[in-house]
Simulated scan of single mutants.
Amino acid sequence: MAPDSVPAPAPPEPIKAVPVRHPWRWVLIAVLAVLAAMFVHLLVTNDHFQWAFIVDNAFRPPIIDGLRGTILLTIFSMVIGVVLGVLIAMMRLSPNPVLRGVAWTYTWIFRAMPRLVLAVLFGNLGILWERLEFGLPFDTQIGRLFGIDDLRVRIFGLDARTFLSGFVAGLLALALSEAAYMAEIVRAGIQSVDPGQAEAAEALGMTRGQVLRRIVLPQAMRLIVPPTGNETIAMLKDTALVAYVPVTGELFFQLQAVGHRTFVVFPMLVAACGWYILLTSVLLVAQHYIERYFSRGYNRSQKARARLRDLGAETGGRVTTV
């Protein structure tokens, strides 16, 4: 048959695209809208919230001082907890069985104890000692062995109740508890890094500390930062527990004091919720940017691997990805 007599192919039929309908989605939106409207109506119309009273009392100087104390308590507790947690994580990963045992015992004890119990316990540690003194241990017993009844070797000392003030006791309780959780977070992040990279770095002559600082931790931070951000937010909220020590320079304590003094308790609890929501929102924004900073190389590598996979599919598998 001549080429001119070949019939032209029929044009493709138009695609009849039927949009996927989601009727229950609109039902859910309507239900949520009604619930939101009911909640707003409750906030506006219920006189027990006493918004004018909240505005008048939630920003007074004692409340601002308590806010400053809460922020400082959060920062110091997290700094101590992170530093101590990294050390404990290193001990957990150490080949030394003694260090591993000590680290495991620490995490076991402090993860088992509620922070409220720890805060109250540390607030009463002054019962055990009148003074905290540093010097030769067991000096009295050693002196008796040599016939010296009053052998006391002390470098310096301080009053236990003065040192273990409410703020210090609450700080120690929160920081030591946080260190146990941070140790597990750091340990999991370090173990997520391919051990072959550490072996290659050691083969190039790097010390164990250099390998940890330059190779392992920068990669582990991508997995360490998100749970650490969550722990920071949890720590901010757990600072309210030190009101039971008591720590007077703390936000929740000051808000409660206003409520008890004026016999208007509920509005001050609402004010506390507002303050914690505001502080948590600031931390969430900071966490977002920190996570994006430590994930920037990982996101690019993920996109590159996706492009290679697409190119491999287009070329019939002649391009491979690793």
Rank of each mutant, 00 (worst) to 15 (best):
Q197H: 11
E199H: 08
E199V: 12
E199G: 06
E199R: 10
A201P: 03
E202D: 06
E202S: 04
E202P: 00
A203P: 00
G205R: 03
R208P: 01
Q210S: 08
Q210N: 02
V211W: 02
V211H: 06
R214I: 00
R214Q: 06
I215K: 12
V216R: 02
P218T: 02
P218Y: 05
P218V: 02
A220K: 01
A220H: 03
A220D: 05
M221C: 08
L223S: 13
V225A: 04
V225L: 06
P226E: 10
T228M: 15
N230S: 08
N230T: 09
E231F: 00
T232S: 03
T232E: 01
M235Q: 10
K237D: 03
K237I: 05
D238M: 08
D238K: 01
T239N: 06
T239Y: 05
A240L: 05
P246V: 15
T248K: 11
T248V: 15
T248N: 13
G249Q: 15
F253V: 07
L255F: 09
L255P: 07
L255G: 05
Q256V: 14
Q256I: 04
V258N: 06
G259H: 00
H260G: 08
V264A: 00
V265Q: 10
F266I: 15
P267H: 13
P267G: 11
P267L: 07
M268V: 09
M268N: 09
A271D: 09
A271C: 14
A272H: 11
A272D: 07
C273T: 13
C273P: 10
C273K: 02
G274R: 06
W275T: 12
L278N: 03
L278K: 01
L278H: 04
L278G: 12
L278A: 14
L279C: 02
T280N: 14
S281D: 04
S281I: 00
L284S: 06
V285H: 10
A286I: 15
A286E: 09
R292H: 04
Y293H: 14
S295T: 09
S295D: 13
R296S: 15
R296K: 14
N299D: 13
N299G: 02
N299E: 09
R300T: 06
